[in-house]
Design a protein around this nucleic acid. Sequence first.
RNA 1: UCCUCAGUAGCUCAAUCGGCAGAGCAACCGGCUGUUAACCGGUGGGUUCUAGGUUCAAGUCCUAGCUGAGGAGCCA
Length: 445
Amino acid sequence: MTPIVPIAEFANHVGQEVTVRGWLYNKTGKGRLQFLQVRDGSGIAQCVIFEKDVAPEVFEAAKSITQESSLAVTGVVRQDDRAPGVPGGYELGVAALSIIQTAEPYPIQPKEHGVEFLEDNRHLWVRSSRQWAILRVRATLIKIIRDWLDGHGYLLVDTPIISANAGEESSTLFGLDFFGEQAYLAQTGQLYNEANIMSFGKVYCFGPTFRAEKSKTRRHLAEFWMVEPEMAFFDLDDLMAMEEQFVSSVIQTALTERRVELEYLERDTSRLQKITPPFPRISYDEALALLAEIRENTDDPEQKALLALEWGSDFGSPHETAIAESFEKPVFVYHYPTACKAFYMTPVAGRPEVCRSVDLLAPEGYGEITGGSERIHDLAILEERVKEIGIDPAAYNWYLDLRRYGTVPHAGFGLGVERLVAWVCGLPHVRETVPYARRMTRLYP
RNA sequence: UCCUCAGUAGCUCAAUCGGCAGAGCAACCGGCUGUUAACCGGUGGGUUCUAGGUUCAAGUCCUAGCUGAGGAGCCA
């Protein structure tokens, strides 16, 4: 028996006879010479079959094998610069071939397809090398995020996905029947994080979150993954300092660990390499002034209209993009108007119309990548805010309790995994950043 | 919810002024010893999104609907 070797490790097996088990990704023939591109999950390798080198039935099988048939090939690994693949540069000189199953005509070809067709066939599309590369980057980013937090004193504390809190924005929640009671799929684990920091100091939750918003844009999913760190004894400055270390480190590590995949995706990583601390920081007021300046300098009347904004409104997508494009690195925008942020964000002392919140806007049009704030830790102020917003204090009794029993200043933020993956991979749409996207128009497969 | 655009072969698309439904790829058959989404020759493949309407004649024009895409709002 020859050893079964992952394609990714071909470089360590040059001159040795090995077996690869996998699927036929693509095939081209030149008469008495056949090229099979075989993928095994770790990579894609070209397997070369000369008619004179193998038994007639093996060559016949190689000629007639269909795309995505499952197979095992045995042969000697050799270095050859002409060999395509991932990582490429090595190929297999085939001595034996066995077909496990001959695939029926495969719907996805190595060519352009429409997005609806591809999403209908997502269960097959995940095999495509581009999707394979993206999902490997995604898995690595998640691992790096967790490694960084675990290595910096944060404890993973899971928060519930089924939640009773109607709270802030019930229109954007997915409802469900919980043994006769109205329940909702979680939008955030943050309120539970605030309880957990009083036990563990620094925590994070990492899981799927759900928004029933009828959003149809390249940045929105109905089900998306979010990591939410929350820290006791953190103020807004601590928060920004932590975020820039965290985000920079995650990106730099991903560039190293997934170099091959990002190269395959033809991602220009030069801009990502510049993502190092410190990040620029501007206030909401300064951001408004910056937008006004950008409006002054543009001749495009459409752009002028899009960028119009009055004090007190939250930024839309065009504003975020324009602000972010003014900087090479991600930019922090802090002190947003209290009215356009969540009720639990701390008002600025002496200026309660703005709050101690901060969003991180990614460059290259990827928009808001994190959103966070210093939370209200004073019971009286929080009770007042609850009253102002008009939500039922009874439903938040446990949350208010946290301010009754040893409250401390604290802060936290949420980072959207899909937007991070899209940014790192340079993708135009978040639909490709998650294995099975759930969007307003997409529930199957 | 609003704005814009689109729907023709398995896939990606064409079809002039309203006048016989087309190509490439895929599939199938044949050829080719270094292909990179190979190439060359051949074969089969259609409820033109749906329902009405106008017309001698509708993929094309009109009305309504369905589905999708991009954007806005909202957000990570």
